[in-house]
Amino acid sequence: MGFRLPNGATLQIASTYGPAIPVTALSNANPAVATAAAHGLTDGDIIAVTSGWTRLNDRAARVANSLTGTFAMENINTTNLQPYPAGSGMGSVREVTGFVEISQITDVNFSGGDQQFLTFGFLADDDDRQIPTTKNPISIAYTVADDPDLPYVAVVEAADDDKQVRVLRMNLPGGSSILYNGYVTITSTPSMGRNNLMTRVITLSLAGRPTRYAAVVV
């Protein structure tokens, strides 16, 4: 049994990416192994994934077991052939080559992610039945103290402008992390109230499922 506080956590957004690396095959395994000639990736690199598998597409992952021509996507389990049909997962990956910290966060609010259900009943039933269907999309709102001179501001405003997905990494106390990939927007003007901080709100709308990682052991 364990527990922890988020105090001391830091949030980063991808500021630069490498070129797209074609993935010519992707295995049904845990973790999934990608075939990519001369990929140049090393263990611990963070990648954004484009895949023919809808459930994997637009996720972020950490590279592991990197060899010449192959690498694994740590904590990505593709053994279930129903959402990951064999032979159709190929696509590409892009390495995140630079991160910049989104600093001065004063509040974090999560919305969505709750399970939806289909409620139904048969003629002979006295009680209705319920089966899970989809989950609501997840959004995370980060309130930040306003400072237009901080390095992350230009990166976030560019993401707001071009509406392209960005990788974000939440670094938790103890060295573990959570990777997100999604659309990033920011309020165009800070909120203002007497005797209160001027703040802006950065919103992350997830395009793919988050991936959580334990601390890297060296």
Rank of each mutant, 00 (worst) to 15 (best):
F120V: 06
Y84C: 03
G112K: 07
Q116G: 08
D127C: 06
S88Y: 04
Q115E: 14
S111M: 07
E101S: 05
A86I: 15
P85G: 05
M90S: 14
A86T: 15
E95H: 03
D126R: 02
L118E: 14
S103D: 14
N80I: 12
D127V: 09
F122I: 02
G87Q: 00
Q104T: 14
Q116R: 14
G113T: 06
F120W: 14
V108T: 05
F120A: 15
S111H: 00
L81R: 08
F120K: 10
T119W: 11
G112V: 09
V100F: 00
D107C: 07
A124W: 02
F117H: 13
G91M: 07
S88N: 00
T119M: 11
D114F: 14
G89T: 02
I102N: 06
Q115N: 13
A124N: 13
S111Y: 00
S92A: 15
D128N: 14
I102P: 05
N80F: 13
S92K: 08
G87E: 06
N80R: 11
P83V: 07
V93L: 05
Q116E: 14
G91D: 02
L123G: 12
L123D: 15
G89E: 01
V108P: 02
V108Y: 04
D125E: 08
M90Y: 13
A124Y: 04
S111T: 15
G87V: 00
F99L: 00
G121F: 00
L118G: 12
M90T: 12
L118K: 12
D126K: 05
F117V: 11
A124Q: 11
N80V: 12
D127W: 01
P85F: 01
Q116V: 04
Q82D: 10
I105T: 13
G91E: 10
D114T: 15
D107V: 05
D128C: 09
V100H: 01
Q115P: 09
S88E: 03
S103W: 01
D114S: 13
Q104C: 11
D114I: 14
A124P: 03
D114W: 12
M90I: 04
R94P: 07
Q116M: 12
E101G: 03
V93H: 00
D126M: 07
T119E: 15
T119L: 12
E95M: 12
V96P: 02
A124R: 05
L118R: 13
E95T: 05
G121T: 08
G87M: 01
E101N: 08
F122A: 15
G113Y: 05
T97K: 08
L123K: 10
